[in-house]
Design a protein around this nucleic acid. Sequence first.
RNA 1: GCUGGAGUGGCGGAACGGUAUACGCGUCGGUCUCAAAAACCGAUAUCUUAACGGGUGUGUGGGUUCGAGUCCCACCUCCAGCACCA
Length: 828
Amino acid sequence: MPYTTNDIRRVEDKWQKYWAGKKIFRAQETPGREKYYVLEMFPYPSGKIHMGHVRNYTIADVIARYKMMRGFNVLHPMGYDAFGQPAENAAIKRGVSPSDWTYKCIEDMHAGLAKMGFSYDWDRELATCDVSYYKWNQWLFIKMFEKGLAYKKGSPVNWCPSCNTTLANEEVINGACWRCKNEVVQKDLDQWYLKITHYSEALLEDLKTLNNWPSRVIAMQENWIGKSYGADIYFRVKGRDDVITVFTTRPDTIFGATYVTLAPEHPLVRKLSQGTAQEAKVAAFVEKAANTSKSLRMSGDQRKDGVFTGAYAVNPVNGRDVPVWIGDYVLMEYGTGAIMAVPTHDQRDFEFAREHKLPMIVVIDDPARPGLAPDQMTRAYEDAGTLVNSSLFDGIPNEEAKKKIALWMEEKKTGKVSVHWRLRDWLISRQRYWGAPIPMIYCKLCGIVPVPEDQLPVELPKDAPITGEGGSPLAKVKEFVECKCPKCGKDARRETDTMATFFDSSWYFLRYCDAHNDKAVFDKAKAAYWMPVDQYIGGIEHAILHLLYSRFFTKFIRDLGLAAVDEPFDRLLTQGMVLKDGEVMSKSKGNVVDPDEVISKFGADTLRMFILFAAPPEDQLEWNPAGLEGNWRFINRVWSAVEDRYDPKVTGNATGSLADADDKKLELERNAAIKKVTESMEGGFKFNTAISAVMVLMNAIDKYNVTTSIPGMKAVYLNKAIETVVLLLAPFTPHVAEEMWQMAGKTDMSVAYVGWPSFDEKALVTDTVRIAVQVNGKVRGEFEVPRDAEEPVLRPIVLADEGVLRHIAGKEIKKFIVIKNKLVSIVV
RNA sequence: GCUGGAGUGGCGGAACGGUAUACGCGUCGGUCUCAAAAACCGAUAUCUUAACGGGUGUGUGGGUUCGAGUCCCACCUCCAGCACCA
């Protein structure tokens, strides 16, 4: 009897109930027992689970189940990243409360996850919108405030006009909001920031320790943090007390700096142009820049617009007067907001100088074609070379000159060696309702005062008006806003912004270690036992956002003395997208395949197996209904083998002496399969090759001939092989594996607790091996030869072969190379 | 432009420097059937040959090696991220 649709329902329900009822996957801290923490990026509960979730969580589940069978104490928790805008949008659209909507979605999501048979410790389930969770958000925020790592400042911020809220730099993708894709504008606002830049150096440095992270994620974070070595150089303004500090990564080119350019927002701009003939022009330029959005200013045709300020500065190394300009390509946020321009050796400066007819001096000569001259250059020379026109530094290679000149200037106090970062502090206040309230109080007398710990949590009021029209909804709830100052007791006002949801997800992996602690953020000892996460799995879209923030939080929490690790995630796997017809599955494209439908037709096990088999986990996965059916067929073949060929009545061990050639072959295949699957798992979770190895064993079982020899003995080998298939499949297709294990009469325990099968290297050793023979690099024959045979044995065998002789044909044999048990290579 | 990654049958994809294309899908042929489906068995890189066999094949061009998909150099294409970051 094949495995039918009815069997699917019966079997999957049965075992899901069994796992839940017996709490098979409950994790308990057991000192002395080796732990393994598997974690997937928890979902935003938007409704039912989709194929992306299925793929992500199936990968994690196979790892969890595999590690469990290998004897590890596995922690595999699940929860919900439950604060965020979609709940508010649902509230606006349907009039439901964000809380009701969210908890309903969580219920659906939970049901969907259970139907996939994932091995979660449901006792640790949490949602970030639970008061019991976000209370600790607030506690962490206050700790940051106390350490000076949370602060409020007014400055230009990214504002999404469609979401009506501020955004962090990391949430702006190509000038657009990461969530709604609308263009982001700049606004001057007073906002809360977390000082992630306090950890710039550590965040960069510790990337080196993350050897099991994908290189592209490391590269992306490196780029994002963006450490630049160089020098700050002081340009005295002629006829004034002011000094313009510029940052450059090319101090070697200082003798070629022929002008200085300021960002339009630079504080000196107005002052320098005051009273000069340029004043009106400068003012117009500054205003134009201010009214152009940053993304427009930075994209566009990249033509270099600028205007002369009317002022001159002095190049500190040669005393020359250099004009001070304003340029729209200079950013106030980076470096010092001012640059020294070396048009001969920087392409942007080159373009600007040509546009505005500014002078150029060559200071790095091209060693390949000496004699660079400004009027013959069509673009800047940015490669390495030798210094010229640089006084006492002439003739020095420029890489060497970078250090020398910077140090020389530091000595002369005209500059200093410096480092600048691309990373900015993290803006976390949001003018939205569905988030954790920022636990701060504004008092006219005492200023900004944190809510005392014993008054936490600051609960989100249930009845805030949610209109989506802008302004923090909490500001409209009088009872929420009005409060007493914890310091002086006078009337005060609460902060009405909420925290960015990335705050919530930056430490949830620590909370899982002790999910329901109501006395502390988590127990230190429990976290010490479970952390770090051994294997983290999630989408590449969080390469910077969530993964950078979590690294920052972990370092902060470590510095609070609560966590014992420097990094939260030891290994990271970023799973590929699920595609259909070459496009990412999405509701808007209308190409989604509903996991529920697949499950009801083929079962969760088939779905799991297909997703794991069709592509390596990191690669994109093209949805293929025919492939799905292929996996369904395979599960059925195994099922039939257990039903029809497995004999539970036969027990006992096979003895080698009774084995005939077929038996030996089957034993060999069985051991080879265990070895291959184990290696595929240990060598980076290559599920596709792991499954193919099980298929190879299954093919061998189907070919195994029982009729030729002692029947009882045959059943022993056959049983053993079939048991091995079931055990090897257990992490991949857990429901049928449990059922088949039971069908095979193994009723004493869940297959999840049965050890991973081990293999015998000796069983993989055969008496003879097949070797190939090459003549001049081309394969000319194949031989069955005794194992470990050397040249004296092989030479006569090989040279007796007609196929080989044909290609030697009387020529002299120059070399006879033997690679033991692999091949013979003859050179003639 | 910079950074990271990838180019292998009709398709998804395998290959410690050692017989390229495992495994699966698809296709073709067969068994079973009145027939079909399902299931099972077999074939399946390409050119050439009646066949044995031979030639060519892992994006392109070189190199190292007895031997290269794999290592080295140069290049092309694609994907992803960043991008006027001084």
